[in-house]
């Protein structure tokens, strides 16, 4: 099988608002794919289309190389937005309904309830659960039947820090067991911790897509000056020590080329007869990069 999911030119509008525009993504087996973007960037809309809740205006998608069909979704474990179950049914009965839909036995119920620490509450009605527990039940339901693919939309929403850590651990475990994961999140660190690949969305546009390493590398910005800034800059740029240099308040600001360290810059300048009188590293955090990406 070539890939798990292929999205081509997907678009969806709500009246005048374009939720996603010509989105194309493809996801290979075993990838942990993050959909990263601020609120309202089209993440949930995308996942809702992929799970059959919404219909796209134009474009196509295919799961497992097949045209979409309801039965296909029995092989995918999904949690879209907040989980919705029958409030008057207990957890076990709610999960029985899901098992029946997925054409699987009830044996998995105990397993997933224990996995999400809800086993003790299995006889409680869904409406009596706290927000965090409801969220965990949503994850439990997604895990039913050990599906090959997990589609999780903001799975740590509404959880306390301990809950967040646990859920992340569960997800990472699933990924390590070879599952393909599609994770929507507005929390950069979450995507960074869990995902191998990422697509960044903003206002329905795909800003960037690729491996997390490629897209979200930590770049080092340096601030420096010398008695002859012009010469220094020419030297550094010609020899591929820095790029994207600019002047800022009388000092030079530039990006260190990959593999270069701040000391290398100093050594290089000194070796070429330029004495640097000011040299500061301004590490650009991932958060800053992400914000920059979505700001433009």
């Amino acid at each position: 099988m070539s890939n798990i999911l292929e999205i081509q030119q997907l678009s969806k509008s709500y009246r005048s608002v374009k939720a996603i525009k010509n989105l194309s993504i493809h996801i290979d087996p075993g990838q942990a794919f993050g959909l990263l973007g601020p609120n309202g960037s089209g993440k949930t809309t995308t996942l809702s289309i992929l799970t059959g809740i919404l219909r796209q205006d134009t474009g196509t998608y295919s799961w497992f190389g097949e045209t979409p069909s309801p039965g296909q979704r029995t092989r995918i474990g999904s949690l879209i937005e907040t989980p919705h179950f029958y409030p008057y049914l207990n957890l076990e009965k709610n999960l029985r309904i899901i098992c029946t839909i997925k054409n699987i036995g009830f044996d998995d119920i105990e397993l997933v309830l224990k996995e999400t620490r809800l086993f003790e509450r299995r006889k409680s009605r869904f409406k009596t659960l706290s927000l965090g527990m409801k969220q965990r039940l949503g994850i439990a339901a997604a895990l039913l039947g050990d599906p090959r693919v997990l589609v999780l939309d903001e799975p740590t929403n509404g959880l306390d820090p301990e809950g967040i850590a646990e859920v992340r651990e569960t997800i990472i475990e699933q990924v390590e067991r070879g599952k393909t994961l599609i994770l929507a999140s507005h929390i950069l660190s979450e995507v960074e911790k869990i995902c191998s690949h990422v697509a960044i969305l903003k206002n329905g546009d795909l800003l960037a897509a690729g491996s997390v390493k490629e897209i979200l590398t930590e770049e080092e910005v340096v601030e420096f000056s010398s008695s002859d800034n012009a010469k220094l800059l020419r030297l550094l740029e010609e020899n591929n020590v820095v790029t994207e240099a600019r002047k800022e308040n009388g000092v030079l600001v530039a990006l260190l080329q990959p593999g270069m360290k701040i000391g290398d810059l100093n050594t290089f300048a000194f070796g070429n007869g330029v004495v640097i009188d000011h040299l500061v590293s301004r590490k650009k955090s991932l958060e800053a990069q992400f914000l920059e990406l979505v700001k433009e």
């Binding site: 059959g52 309801p70 979704r73 919705h84 997925k102």
Partner: peptide, 13 residues
């Protein structure tokens, strides 16, 4: 209860 949605997500048409 949004349960029509849930049933679709898990594989009903």
């Amino acid at each position: 209860n949004h349960t029509f949605k849930t049933q679709v997500i898990f594989g009903l048409g």
